[in-house]
Computed example of a mutant assay.
Amino acid sequence: MRWQGMPEFIAAAQAQSFTAAAKQIGTSVAHISRSISALEDYYNTQLFIRSTRKVVLTQQGELLLHHAKKAQSVLEQGEWALQKQQAQPSGQLKITAPVMFGEQFIMPLVHEYMALYPKVSVTMILSNQTMDLIGEHIDLAIRIGELADSNLKARRLASRAVIVCASPEYLNEYGQPYVLSELAHHQCLLGHADTWRFQEGERFRHIKIAKTKLRCNSGWALADAAMRGLGLVQLPDYYVQPALQQGQLKEVLHSFAIRKEPISAITPANLYQANATKALMDYLAEHLSDRLGASYDLGLGR
């Protein structure tokens, strides 16, 4: 009986709204209000300061929420342990990934995964914005690069290098750069950023590109432009590696290349992983590296 009303309290505290909490749980606003009033009577303290627009936790409410979330996590882990042996993943997954990378590499693998596990349904959000996993109720995020948020649980799926390259024809005409200062004298093909990233020893450098003949948010389009001799380009290896191997592009400034970056699957650290989430991460970890290496053979980027 001590737990009665706690899910309603946690939902209202996180949403700062009885109405939003009712929608989240699938109940009425009146039920949320009664449940929280019962908790306040039980603990003989005010948990919320109520207004017409939102509700805000009191100091006592903040203290109770801190411990209630821990208890909720333990209960959820217990429920997960009981369900762990279910034969097939099922349920709703909400996923986010960067737009271009998600379209080209993640979504095809998600489609294959859904064909294997037809009881799973997916909501995919393709966005280059860093989303709040807990606030947006996201089960799994794909992120590229080093991770700074310690409140997230990460699993490395693959890695990528970032390469500066150009066609042999362009280099024959304009020369090959050997130091970073020479970039100012070259045509550079840009994506969404105005800077390119490099590394000198342990020092990272961001070089602002002054001259460009083309700006485009598609890596495949930029790789094609570089192969046609329009300029230098800095792209992840999966866009250009086959062209490098075939001699259509040549890498430059290799001594300043940044170290390989991780491609990771991220989940909230304080929540248990549903069977469907774990199965998807396993599938991505098994197949993503091969899919990145096979991108050119699949006809992507031509």
Rank of each mutant, 00 (worst) to 15 (best):
R205G: 00
H111V: 12
D297A: 15
Q129W: 09
Q77D: 06
A161Q: 12
V99Q: 13
H192V: 11
D237F: 04
L64V: 13
S255K: 04
A141V: 04
Q234M: 05
G201F: 01
L284A: 06
M100H: 10
Y296A: 13
N172Y: 13
S181H: 11
V252P: 00
E173S: 10
A226Q: 13
D297E: 15
W3E: 11
I125P: 02
G301I: 11
M114Y: 08
I266K: 02
C216I: 14
L284Y: 09
L171N: 09
S264H: 10
L39Y: 12
H192D: 05
H206Y: 14
Q234D: 01
V110N: 01
L253M: 09
G175C: 03
I10C: 03
E261W: 15
W196A: 06
L157D: 00
E169I: 12
H111C: 09
E251R: 12
Y239L: 08
M114V: 11
L189M: 12
L232V: 06
F101G: 08
Q176T: 10
F204E: 07
K69D: 00
L47F: 05
S167G: 01
R302L: 08
R2G: 01
N44M: 10
R205Q: 02
E8Y: 14
P7R: 07
A269E: 10
K153A: 13
M227P: 00
E182I: 01
S90Y: 15
A148H: 13
E182C: 04
V74S: 02
G247I: 03
V164N: 02
D237V: 03
S167Y: 01
F9M: 08
R259I: 14
E103G: 07
T123S: 09
Q248I: 04
A11I: 06
L82K: 08
R228I: 01
F18V: 10
I125D: 01
L300G: 04
N151D: 01
A154G: 15
E286F: 07
Q104F: 01
L82P: 00
I32R: 05
A38G: 04
V233D: 00
G247E: 02
P236K: 05
T45H: 07
G229I: 11
D282I: 08
L235F: 05
R2I: 11
I49Q: 14
H186T: 01
Q92K: 12
Y42Q: 04
